[in-house]
Amino acid sequence: KLLSSIEQACDICRLKKLKCSKEKPKCAKCLKNNWECRYSPKTKRSPLTRAHLTEVESRLERLE
């Protein structure tokens, strides 16, 4: 599967780190437990900047 097509777990399953069936409108866990089942939009991760990478590398060197 391509990364862009990976389905996201519902908010509660993601928060509780449960295996989500990803069914809509309610996944199996939410249906069974009568929880409100919501699927928040995916958040875009910002790409690493060179400055951040350099900072992490220098912190790693100090720890070694």
Rank of each mutant, 00 (worst) to 15 (best):
K19F: 01
N34A: 12
L15C: 13
S21N: 05
L53G: 00
D11L: 05
R59N: 06
T49S: 04
K44M: 15
E36S: 14
K26D: 09
D11F: 00
R50L: 05
K44S: 04
L31C: 13
I12E: 12
C37I: 03
T43S: 09
I6W: 09
C37K: 00
Q8L: 12
K16R: 04
C37L: 00
L60R: 00
P41W: 06
K24P: 07
L2C: 12
K44L: 15
V56F: 03
K29W: 00
P25Q: 09
K42R: 13
R59Y: 01
H52C: 04
E23S: 14
H52D: 05
K42L: 12
E7Y: 06
I12W: 15
S4F: 13
K19V: 05
K42S: 08
S58V: 13
E36G: 12
C30W: 08
E55G: 10
L63Q: 01
E36K: 11
W35D: 10
K44T: 12
K17E: 00
I6H: 10
L31Y: 15
H52Q: 08
T49E: 00
S58M: 13
C10D: 01
C20H: 00
C37H: 02
E64A: 04
L18A: 11
L53P: 07
E36R: 13
N33G: 12
K26M: 14
L31T: 11
K17C: 07
E61P: 00
R62K: 10
R62E: 03
L31N: 13
R62H: 08
K22H: 09
E64Q: 14
L48R: 04
N34Y: 14
H52Y: 14
K32I: 11
R59H: 06
R62Q: 13
K44R: 11
K17A: 06
T43Y: 03
C13T: 02
N34E: 14
S5P: 10
K1T: 15
C13V: 07
S21R: 03
T49P: 00
C10M: 07
S58K: 11
N34T: 14
H52P: 00
C20P: 00
C10H: 01
I12L: 10
L2T: 12
R45P: 04
P41K: 06
I6R: 04
E61H: 12
A51C: 10
D11P: 03
K16S: 02
A28L: 13
A28Q: 14
A28K: 14
E7Q: 08
K19T: 07
C30E: 05
S40K: 03
P25M: 03
A9C: 01
P25T: 08
E36F: 09
L60F: 06
R38V: 10
T43C: 12
K26H: 15
S40P: 03
A28S: 06
Q8I: 07
L15N: 11
K26W: 15
S46L: 01
A9L: 02
S4V: 10
K1G: 15
R45I: 02
D11E: 00
S5G: 09
K22D: 04
E23W: 06
C10A: 07
Q8P: 07
Q8F: 15
L15Y: 15
K24N: 15
K42E: 05
T49M: 08
R62F: 14
K42A: 13
T54Q: 09
A9Y: 03
N33S: 14
C10N: 07
S5E: 12
C30S: 00
S4D: 14
S5C: 11
E64M: 15
N33R: 11
T43D: 09
C13H: 02
H52R: 06
S58P: 03
R59A: 11
T49W: 06
L3H: 10
C20S: 05
K29S: 05
R50G: 02
C13E: 07
I6E: 10
K44Q: 15
R59M: 07
R62A: 15
K26P: 03
E36A: 12
A51F: 12
L48I: 09
T49A: 01
I12D: 11
E57H: 06
H52N: 07
C37V: 01
K24V: 15
C27N: 02
L2M: 15
E7C: 11
L63A: 03
C13I: 07
S4G: 07
S21L: 03
A28G: 12
K22N: 06
S40R: 04
E55S: 11
K29Y: 05
E61C: 13
C13K: 02
D11C: 00
L3P: 09
D11N: 03
E36P: 14
L18H: 09
E55K: 09
E61W: 14
L3D: 15
